[in-house]
Simulated scan of single mutants.
Amino acid sequence: MTQDFILANASLVLPEESLTGSLVIKDGVIMDIATGPNVPRGAIDCGGDIVAPGLIELHTDNLERHIQPRPKVDWPHNAAILAHDAELASTGITTVFDAMRVGSIPSGKGRYLKYARELASELLALRADDALKISHFLHLRAEVCSETLVEEMEEFGPEDRVGIVSLMDHTPGQRQFRDISKLEAYVKGKLSMSDEEFTNHVAQLKALRETHGDHHETEAVAAAKRYGAVLASHDDTTEGQVKVSAGYGISMAEFPTTLEAARACHAHDIPVIMGAPNLIRGGSHSGNVAAHELAEAGYLDILSSDYVPAALLLAAVRLSEQWDDWAKGLATVTCNPAHAVGLDDRGEIAIGKRADLIHFAMRGGAPALRSVWSKGARVA
Rank of each mutant, 00 (worst) to 15 (best):
L82E: 13
I134T: 15
S107V: 12
L82S: 02
I93F: 04
D160M: 00
M100W: 09
L126K: 11
S135Q: 15
L140Q: 12
P106K: 07
A125V: 10
R178C: 09
T148Q: 07
E143T: 10
L119C: 03
R161W: 12
T94L: 00
S166F: 06
A185E: 15
A86G: 04
R111S: 14
V96T: 05
L113R: 13
H139I: 02
R175N: 03
K72V: 09
D129E: 15
M100Q: 14
I180E: 15
A116F: 15
A80N: 04
R111V: 08
F97K: 04
A125P: 05
E197T: 10
G110T: 15
A185D: 12
E154A: 13
A142Y: 01
M100T: 02
I164Q: 04
T148H: 06
R141N: 02
V96R: 01
L113E: 08
R127W: 06
D179M: 05
P158Y: 11
M153F: 09
A89Q: 00
G92W: 06
L132W: 08
R117P: 02
F177A: 00
R161V: 08
G157T: 08
D169K: 03
R101T: 03
E154I: 01
K188D: 04
G157L: 05
V102I: 14
A116C: 05
L82M: 11
E196C: 01
E147K: 00
D169P: 09
G189V: 13
A203K: 06
T171I: 08
L138E: 06
D74M: 14
H170L: 12
L132A: 02
R141E: 00
E147C: 01
G189S: 11
D179L: 10
L126Q: 12
M100C: 14
F156I: 08
E152P: 10
L113Y: 12
H84F: 12
K182N: 05
A125G: 06
D195F: 12
K206S: 03
D98W: 06
Y112S: 11
R178E: 14
P71Y: 13
L82H: 04
E122Q: 15
A89T: 01
S121N: 12
E118P: 03
A116W: 11
R70N: 13
R175F: 03
S146N: 06
R161F: 10
P71M: 07
H170P: 07
H201R: 10
C145P: 09
H139G: 04
K190M: 11
D179P: 06
D85H: 01
L140W: 12
E147G: 01
H77W: 13
Q176C: 07
I134W: 08
T171C: 14
L191I: 00
L113W: 07
S194Q: 04
T94K: 02
A83N: 01
L124A: 03
V144E: 09
E118Q: 13
G157I: 09
D195T: 10
A89M: 00
A86N: 02
L123N: 02
K72S: 13
E159G: 10
L167Y: 14
S121P: 00
R111L: 08
D130E: 15
F177S: 03
M100G: 05
M193D: 06
R70L: 14
A79S: 09
